[in-house]
Design a protein around this nucleic acid. Structure first.
Lengths: 366, 366
DNA sequence: CGCTAGCAATCGCCCATGTAGAGTGTCAAG
DNA sequence: CTTGACACTCTACATGGGCGATTGCTAGCG
């Protein structure tokens, strides 16, 4: 009775026992009994004493017994306490960091989806879990070149090249037909005035001109660079998922029906996406353990996410999905580092891109 | 002994029994016993007689008993005989055909991947199996417009618009730098000479000029339209798979390990792709039952495929993947019709595209 | 007052056993 | 060639008794 006020937090000793228990369970996968803990906790306590401690921990909701006489396993709340205050993070091995960096740099000049895909695979490979990376919002997108082509039925095909070599195209529905000459003039105007400028800047400048002459041309030009993220035909924004099949290796997900629902959710994208969005707000690694996600399908799963940034703008979220019983001490740093490196890779891409846009070596070369 | 020469093919009665057995097994999923057949075969034979017939069929390898006293189920060879000579195909319901047609037409102008994706989903929805459609090779691709942009390091970005509104881009590694002026001239030349022409035609014509002047420009121009299928950055050619999760509903695939291997194969793409390629040769529906595919992972699966054509050129393959125990009489016509409709949709797309390319209504309009 | 040893109780797991049911192969008779 | 009868085989399912692991509780020890 009198202990209830203080019982929200476990004692020092209980915390130690909890840590050992969680670590052991994560490693072995079997419920952990008092005897095992007594032997491995390094506290020199008899099983009976450990049992008392475990009873306390169970009362607090940190651990639970799957059935009478089967040792204890951590609850979601137990994992939560573990990752918040007990876990001893294990920094990534330096060689792994270097390799990861290599996988993210280079050869992706401007192709947002490809680089996201590489990051996703890397996450999956490093953690043996499913990796997920949202396609980066191109906050900074500098215009390299634009071109219009007339289509039938008052539609216009706009092709724009941003950031060095990324080609986007979309079909604009206009309210009248345009001649080739008009389109050429519009393209010339944009190319002369705005090459090397950021798209958002182009947009505001165009908007400023809106009340001036030729506002119908303006409409065309504005539309062409509006919402510049998703490619026209391609399956719209979303995320890249890798290594889903790895999830089938875990006993806790060995039920076909569960797997099916999980994979269907992956296919839908919606739920996962809103979940990822939630961690855009936070800075740094965020963890959703079991029921915390709010999605029944993910009850036995943990999602570790981190936003990644270009400059100081958050442009996307990445993370891993796995069973609640995952190696948090390894996974958390991996997610953290990957987010940082992906941001860096995207950043260098941008810094380099515009330089190429000015083609400094063409003048001196040849 | 004396019967062995004639025993390669089952008797008329045996064929009838086999048909009933296969149909029944496909419907119910349980091994079929002699009593059941005696009641449902409509032959007015006692179970004992049926048993004799079944023993013959088993000797021929058409059916097998999973264990003593458990009825019989068809073997791969049994299914093969069934689909080759016994099955009574059930034509698709007219409303379904119309709906399917609607799903494939329209709104996909030129976007090969999107239309393949729609076909794949449709296949999956109609059959409750996994649908698969290879991205169509654009055999006919008429040049609409081309554009070059210089990049760093002797690389050139080529953007070409084919078939109305499909934008492709690739990065060319050249052996020297090109000035903007040179690139503009090359683009102008191509646009003036070859707009509205088929890419293959462009290629041969360019090649004819090869020994003439300016062969270095020719190299550039040839490269830009070489192997015009895969978009630059996008995950290269391949197929679109839909409804894989539906496969998890089948008992014969309820083993997590099997599912895992299957999904990993889907992810790899390689094996599935070579399998699909095999049916490019054949015309019409082709079926790989169980072991016939040659891939262990697909031992319990059947793949029903059909190539689809534009004009008289085969440009891709589509089909469904499901358990060997599938409703062949419904699935085969669905695959057949979908292939035809997809071809038609792609064809109309092409026929319409070039017309738009000439923009007849622009001159008369406005 | 906290720790410990001991003890009964609980429960999952494994195995053997028993039973019911479904289906087969065979054989002799029609 | 067909059929009814019969013995046989095998699965699926339920039952029940150890076995082992682990717990909660309580009395005693320092």
């Amino acid at each position: 009775m009198g202990t209830e006020l203080t019982s929200d937090l476990p004692s020092e000793r209980a915390r130690h026992v909890l840590r050992i228990l969680v670590e052991h369970y994560i490693r072995e996968g079997h419920p952990v009994g008092s005897r095992t803990l007594s032997l491995t906790a390094g506290l020199d306590l008899s099983p009976a004493t450990i049992r008392n401690v475990m009873a306390d921990l169970e009362d607090l909701g940190f651990i639970a017994a799957p059935h009478t006489s089967a040792g204890r396993i951590p609850t979601a709340k137990g994992y939560r306490f573990f990752v918040d205050t007990l876990v001893r993070l294990q920094p990534m091995a330096e060689p792994d960091v270097v390799r990861l960096q290599g996988q993210l740099e280079d050869r992706f000049r401007g192709d947002a989806k490809a680089i996201a895909s590489a990051a996703s695979s890397a996450l999956s490979a490093l953690t043996s879990l499913a990796g997920v990376v949202t396609i980066p919002r191109q906050q900074k997108a500098t215009l390299r070149h634009i071109e219009f082509l007339p289509l039938s039925g008052r539609r216009v095909l706009a092709i724009l090249v941003v950031n060095d070599a990324e080609v986007q195209n979309r079909i604009l529905d206009m309210d009248r037909d345009y001649t080739e000459e008009e389109l050429r003039r519009a393209a010339n105007y944009l190319n002369e005035q705005f090459t090397g400028r950021d798209l958002s800047e182009v947009r505001t400048r165009l908007r400023a001109n809106l009340d001036g002459t030729r506002e119908y041309m303006n409409r065309l030009m504005l539309d062409s660079i509006a919402g510049h993220a998703p490619k026209a035909g391609t399956e719209s924004a979303g995320y890249v998922l890798s290594g889903e099949t790895k999830l089938m290796n875990f006993q806790e997900l060995s039920d076909v029906e569960k797997i099916r629902q999980l994979f269907e959710a992956f296919g839908e994208q919606r739920e996962i996406l809103t979940l990822l969005d939630r961690s855009v707000a936070a800075q740094g690694v965020q963890i959703f353990i079991g029921e915390e996600s709010g999605y029944r399908i993910l009850d036995d799963c943990t999602i570790v996410t981190a936003p990644y940034t270009v400059g100081d703008q958050i442009v996307g979220v990445l993370g891993v999905i796995g069973p609640t019983r995952m190696a948090y001490e390894r996974v958390i740093p991996i997610v953290q580092v990957t987010a940082r490196l992906l941001g860096a890779a995207l950043n260098s891409d941008l810094n380099v891109g515009p330089d190429f846009g000015l083609r400094p070596d063409l003048n001196s070369g040849s």
